[in-house]
Design a protein around this nucleic acid. Sequence first.
RNA 1: GGCGAGUUGGCGGAGUGGUUACGCAGCGGAUUGCAAAUCCGUGUACAGGAGUUCGAUUCUCCUACUCGCCUCCA
Length: 456
Amino acid sequence: MTQLRLHNTATRKAEDFTPIDPNNVRMYVCGPTVYDRAHLGNARPVLVFDVLYRLLRHIYGADHVTYVRNFTDVDDKIIARAAEAGREIDAITTETTRWYLEDMAALGAMEPSAMPRATQYIPQMVAMIEELIAKGNAYAAEGHVLFAVDSYADYGRLSGRSVDDMIAGARVEVAPYKRNPMDFVLWKPAKDGEPGWESPWGRGRPGWHIECSAMSYELLGATFDIHGGGNDLMFPHHENEIAQSCCAHPGGSFANVWLHNEMLQVEGKKMSKSLGNFFTVKDLLDKGYPGEVIRFVMLSTHYRRPMDWTEKKAEEAEKTLRKWYALASSAQADGAPPAAVINALADDLNTHKALAECHQLAAAQDATALRASLEQLGLIGEEAPRWAAEAEVDLSAFETRLSDLRMEAMASKDFTGVDQLKAALIDAGVEVQMSKVGVSLTPQAGFDPAKLEALK
RNA sequence: GGCGAGUUGGCGGAGUGGUUACGCAGCGGAUUGCAAAUCCGUGUACAGGAGUUCGAUUCUCCUACUCGCCUCCA
């Protein structure tokens, strides 16, 4: 069996991965807050952990991996969005959830085994908070319930911070009811008109962090294998999850391995609305970037390095994929991915190296192995995507015409007419190939039938 | 201020204590009426300084610079 190695944020080292139960490898990834279309940055963790999910299924068997990714459907941003749009919260979260799944599917991401919504687990969260209060790790104050960071000695360990340092550098305003400035909210009161649930502390709603602790416990247990997300979640979100879960379930160790992907940039800069380089996955898809191209670009940088999205990369990716699909389409979809590809992925998800292996397979014209590799990487399904297939245009009339012209020119040595037609065809986005065998015309990416029409 | 990541050839981007990354672009050649496509060949890079070592791009330390997080944006 392939030995998987993963870089564990908790230890800052690459470690051999050993599942708690090889018959049920369990992974939890923090999902989106559903209030708007997913932007390109949201797609990165989805794709990183999709690659890991596929790899785990390959190594341990498709039926022996449980992958949970949550939807945060109660949150300040959602409430604000509903208020400004004058819509029901439920309508927004339902719609956004659907968008999210559609957009991620377009990128070739498989759906996780379970996708719990926070609002479905309120009683479990309340129970967990009660447990934390009973154990002395949390306290109620002015309608809020707060986690007492002083009660958990290891607080800050994951992100390498000490509570004292954090207080020194904190820029947040400290609520007067907090015992320690770093104490964070488990439960907060709901204002009139805001969504809320009855609880021992009055009508309110959960803080952000508790949902992941509650849902991972319900679905994966007190100890599971892998917990992932973007590295911006390391602090405070994951730090807080650890504190909550380890204090509520002292017998468990929560997640054994922590994986964090680096952030995404666009043309060398942080993606932000103010820089005008902010866009959603849907924006890119609508602009004509196929999902496979986006996925390829994402996978071409290692997940722990900043990923820079550029137009140039997307163009190169499309050219490469066209070539690969043309070759892979000639193979049956039943091959096993070569060891080199699996080993690359097993080495802390070295997706770039896996793609490099695909280049080698393509160069060697190994269609079967290439196809299997693309399947493993989620770049091909039942068949090659339609955008990469040759356009269904009948160019045989032009082929004959060009061929005849060429034969005449060969004899007369006057190639003017041939060159004119050739130039016009190229201008219309047609690839022109002339050899001893004959003339071959192939529509390219920028094929323009209108220009062709003018040649008739 | 605190924490963390990074600095590789024209560009992108892996990796390694002493041997070729790979892709794209470029250059030379084959092929072609000319091209395109394809094939063959081609580039000796690793921020700076010190140290460890027989030997460092790869390990350690320092410096510079870049970037991210600390603000419930992945």
